[in-house]
Design a protein around this nucleic acid. Structure first.
Lengths: 225, 225
DNA sequence: TGAATAGTGTCTTTGAGACAATATTGC
DNA sequence: GCAATATTGTCTCAAAGACACTATTCA
């Protein structure tokens, strides 16, 4: 009989921790690579999943409890050697979530800084690197990083998030102009930092229309790289 | 036994014809959709293919005779309904080739303008649209459209190609500045248009280093969209 | 010489970054 | 008032587009 192909999905779940971009890894419960830290993922279930995207959303929720508002296809990785069980195809996705909805690191879940990744099983290291560069590049001209913030945030906080993702400082005036141009935020009437010894910053939230989609600019944040 | 998933690849082969972007379609020799015009594609063969990319390159060559210098993954399409044979995953690729290496339209191969696509079987219409917008967007900041030119071409010709892909006029001075900045072309000593009643244009070719990869700009060709 | 298109110089406009002035808070 | 950070105004510089001028060919 013809050899059949293993069809899986993998999810790169990204968040911010200590001011740096981190990926969430799970400890594998089964072979291959039992006990190793790896990306959340698993088999597509043709009985229940209506698409690879649904499989990714389902597996992410089953394995981490997280329903991410932003889950997008990254790329597909394939070949005879990436999985010891045989010729495989993995459709990879990436998700961005605010730090506060993640469980603390534990026996089965942990965050690792994307700047210092451990060696990972399968081709998960490659998938993760691809996701990080995709996120970095998309962040230059879109509102993608707002998914790393909670529901309410100030512009200085958001700027810090952009800087963490892009890995370089961002001009404050240009940043505010761009955010204005993107038009996806609305101010909330309360203010924040009532406890800090300086002028409090205005709190903002995403406009309803942008809760699940990006706002995109022509020209980017002009981070020369 | 568990239902197995059908794993295929599809290739969106793009070229220029009569000044417009066209896709190449093949007449299907088998069911499903026997006789219908559809994208070149087929099953991944785990016995021979080392990756989905290799499967795409192999199928493209087998079905059209073309070995494309540029063949890149587009996205993966999946679900229970896109193929009547069952739950399927198709890894889609796109390729750009100069008009002169294509066979003329015939019984089994034809070009269709991407601006007026016929209804296509499977989800090939969707795949094709996705490919066109990807190519358009990449063309704004990279050398991608040079793959639609032959080996030798003039800057005015290249500009026309960009305009066809982008679907809008491009500023001549800016265009030449950008091409200079991309640094991927070198002039050839001979000139062209010796037969035209006006000043002949300098012929250029791709530098060796760029024969198989793109040159990318920060800021794009500034086509406001 | 005239028509036609290639190639270049330069002015104007737009947008990004630098810098700094003003605003608001707790101490 | 002072320290600290938020927010805004404005200047400078770089890049894109507009426009027009020069160059080269054939008829």
């Amino acid at each position: 009989m013809a050899t059949s192909i293993i069809c899986t999905v993998d999810v790169v779940l990204l968040t911010l921790h200590d001011g740096d971009l981190h990926a969430v890894l799970l400890r594998r419960e089964r072979d291959p690579f039992k006990q190793a830290w790896a990306l959340p993922g698993g088999y597509i279930d043709p009985e229940h999943d209506q698409s690879a995207w649904e499989a990714a959303a389902r597996l992410l929720e089953q394995k981490t409890g997280i329903v991410s508002p932003y889950l997008e296809q990254l790329a597909t990785f394939s070949g005879p050697a990436r999985d010891p069980r045989g010729w495989s195809v993995s459709v990879a996705y990436y998700a961005l979530v605010p730090a506060d909805i993640l469980p603390a690191d534990g026996e089965a879940v942990k965050r690792v800084p994307t700047a210092r990744l451990p060696t990972l099983p399968f081709d998960h290291g490659n998938i993760l690197q691809t996701a990080v560069s995709r996120v970095r590049s998309k962040s230059q001209y879109s509102s993608l990083p707002v998914y790393l913030c909670g529901e309410r945030f100030t512009l200085p906080q958001l700027q810090t998030v952009y800087e963490a993702v892009l890995g370089e400082p961002v001009n404050k005036v240009s940043f505010r102009r761009k955010v204005e141009e993107l038009g996806m935020l609305e101010p909330i009437e309360g203010e924040m930092d009532a406890g800090k010894a300086h002028r409090p910053a205005q709190l903002y939230r995403l406009r309803k229309e942008f809760r699940r989609r990006l706002s995109v600019l022509d020209r980017g944040l002009n981070s020369r790289s």
